[in-house]
């Protein structure tokens, strides 16, 4: 079993990065970044077969990761930096003019580790399906991981991709939903009906796993099951139960911090709740 303490330390530092980045930029999306921190920390640290030093955009010989919910760029950038894709000092340039760390992920600015731009929602699962299809054609045994938001599953294109991937037997495609139950206008249950997510994905022909997105043992077990499903002909959707704003008491469980940066004072209050484990950037 992986070193849970090690993952816990990384995720605490990633949460600090997220808060410091959005506070410095006075904009950005901390809520969903904090809810998906543990998932991405585990994925990049323990699960994916990847090497930042030999990374190329064509994903040859490595696993690929697509962030469909592009507004989760703070957690994505932090995890990439902490994994060695670029210097952690670059996190200070988040959302600044001329930075590679655009508000939403960009390939135009050539940030190491980014396969495809995202931000306009609902599209990343299709891109991931295309990469997975390409890997199948090439006999490349690697996996493609895609992180979607739960609010994002209101987009029709998600369900187009949901039909496409099983039809083409893309069992090397492992999708994840950050199931925090919140979107920018409020709790998802008050916005529109995405209930019965597990049944929906099952009905579309996916291998569905429900896991606890803030419990590293549950997260790692889910990824093990997903990898084991390779060869089944079915893609996997892991529904990670999470909490928006997780790790900061006044941000947790509310949509208020979906797309808003805290003041400097509130940021200090939040940082006091998160141990600086690996050194701030």
């Amino acid at each position: 079993m992986a070193n849970i303490d090690h993952l816990t330390k990384i995720s605490s530092q990633v949460r600090r990065d997220i808060l410091r980045m959005v506070t410095a930029a006075a904009s950005g999306h901390p809520g969903g970044s904090l809810s998906s921190t543990d998932i991405l920390t585990a994925l990049f640290t323990e699960v994916m077969d990847h090497d930042p030093k030999t990374w190329t955009r064509d994903a040859k010989g490595q696993d690929a990761f697509i962030l469909s919910a592009g507004h989760l760029s703070p957690v994505y950038y932090s995890v990439l930096a902490r994994s060695g894709y670029f210097p952690i000092q670059d996190l200070a340039s988040f959302r600044q003019y001329g930075s590679k760390l655009q508000g939403h992920p960009s390939t135009e600015h050539r940030l190491n580790g980014i396969f495809q731009p995202s931000g306009s929602l609902g599209q990343g699962l299709s891109v991931g399906a295309g990469i997975a299809l390409s890997k199948k054609m090439d006999g490349d045994d690697h996996c493609v991981y895609v992180l979607c938001g739960d609010g994002e599953s209101e987009e029709g294109q998600i369900w187009e991709a949901a039909m496409f991937a099983p039809h083409h037997s893309l069992d090397n495609l492992i999708a994840m939903t950050d199931w925090n139950g919140q979107q920018i206008d409020g709790p998802i249950s008050t916005i529109t009906g995405i209930e019965n997510l597990s049944e929906k994905w099952s009905a579309f022909g996916w291998n569905v796993i429900v896991a606890e997105g803030h419990d590293f043992e549950s997260i790692l077990q889910a990824f093990d099951l997903a990898k084991a499903a390779k060869g089944s002909g079915k893609p996997t959707m892991i529904l990670f139960r999470t909490e928006m704003g997780h790790g900061v008491d006044f941000m947790a469980g509310t949509n208020e911090w979906h797309g808003k940066a805290p003041s400097k004072e509130l940021c200090e209050k939040a940082l006091a709740q998160l141990e600086e484990t690996l050194g701030d950037y």
């Binding site: 299709s126 891109v127 029709g156 294109q157 991709a161 039809h167």
Partner: peptide, 19 residues
């Protein structure tokens, strides 16, 4: 299938991997 939006995304994924 009659799902053009997905088709564009799939094509992008195929393209970045060399197709």
């Amino acid at each position: 299938g009659i799902a053009e939006a997905n088709m564009i995304g799939v094509a992008a994924g195929l393209a970045i991997t060399g197709k």
